[in-house]
Design a protein around this nucleic acid. Structure first.
Lengths: 144, 144
DNA sequence: CGTCATGGTTGACTTTGTCAACTAACTTCG
DNA sequence: CGAAGTTAGTTGACAAAGTCAACCATGACG
C-alpha cells in the first residue's frame, strides 16, 4: 500500500527537473546536453580540475567524462593541458567563452530553480537538499 | 558560494537510488530493468489499467510504455486483453507470477528504502516526499 | 629494473527518454 | 449516414546517459 513510494516521487521530480533545465537551456540559447552543462559547471567550480576529480565528485564513469570533456574542448569551452607535475593528468580549465556560458547557465538555472521551490519556505528547501545529500551518502556508503 | 546547487544533490540522489535498486533487484534474482519494474508496479497498483493511464501517471512517453508492456507480457508477467467497452484500449493485469514478482520487488525495495533513510527522522522523510511532489508539480504546471 | 597502481582513452553495449508518423477504433456533428 | 477530428496504441529512428571491460601511458615503489 504505502501510497507514496519514495522512489516514485524522486523519479518524477528529477525527471521534471531535467526537463525544466533542458527547457531553460534551450530558451537561453544554450544547446548543450545537461550532462555537458554539469561537467562544465564542475570544471568552473574546481580550481585545479582533472577528469578523475570530476568523475569522483559526481559519481560518474571515467569514460563518460572523457567523452564529455572532449566535446567541451571541441566546442572551445574548455582547455586541456598536461599537468606539469604529473604527465598522466590533464588540467581542465574553462576558456573565456566557457566562463561566459557558465554564467548564462547559472542565470537560467536560478530562474528555473526559484520556480521549482515556489511556495516552499526557503529553510525547508535547505533541509531538503541536506536530506537528499544524506540519503545519497547512505546509499553510497553501504555498498558492501 | 552556495556550495550546494539543488540540482546536483538531486541528481546524485536519484543516481544512487537507481543503483541501489538495481543492486537490490539483482540480489533478489530479479533481472528486469528498473523501468520495467516500475511499470509492473503501476499495473499492479491501478485497478483497470491501460497503457495511457500508466503513461500519464508517471509522465512517460506512450511509446516507452508500449515497449515495456510488450516485454512484460513476453516475460509472462502481465496479460493484455482488449477492453470490451472500448476496442482501442487494452486492459493490463498482472499474472500470478507477475504478482509474485511484484511482492519480491516490494521486499527488496523496502530493504533498500530503509537503508536510504537510515538516521533520518521518519517525519522528515514524509516531508521530504511531499516536498518532492510539490516541486515536481511546480515544474510541471508552470509550462507556459 | 620489474611490478603495480593511477589517469585517461576507446569500443561495445544497455537503458532511458524523445519525436514523428501511422493505424485502428471511437466521437461528433452536419 | 459519412466526413472530420480524437484517442489508444504501435512503430521506427534517434539522442542522451550510464555501464563494462580492455587497453595505453605515466608514475611510484620495491
Amino acid at each position: 500500500m504505502s501510497s507514496t513510494p519514495p522512489g516514485d516521487a524522486l523519479h518524477r521530480l528529477l525527471h521534471a527537473y531535467k526537463r525544466a533545465m533542458r527547457e531553460a537551456y534551450r530558451a537561453a540559447g544554450i544547446d548543450l546536453p545537461s550532462s555537458h552543462v554539469r561537467t562544465l559547471k564542475a570544471i568552473c567550480g574546481l580550481p585545479k580540475c582533472t577528469a578523475q576529480a570530476i568523475a569522483e565528485r559526481m559519481h560518474r564513469d571515467k569514460s563518460q567524462i572523457t567523452r564529455v570533456v572532449h566535446d567541451l574542448q571541441a566546442a572551445g569551452l574548455i582547455t586541456r593541458r598536461p599537468d606539469p607535475d604529473d604527465g598522466r593528468r590533464q588540467l581542465l580549465a574553462p576558456t573565456a567563452s566557457g566562463k561566459r556560458l557558465r554564467a548564462r547557465v547559472a542565470e537560467a538555472e536560478r530562474e528555473a530553480g526559484t520556480r521549482m521551490v515556489r511556495g516552499l519556505p526557503p529553510t525547508s528547501v535547505a533541509t531538503f537538499v541536506r536530506m537528499a545529500e544524506t540519503m545519497a551518502a547512505n546509499l553510497d556508503t553501504t555498498e558492501s
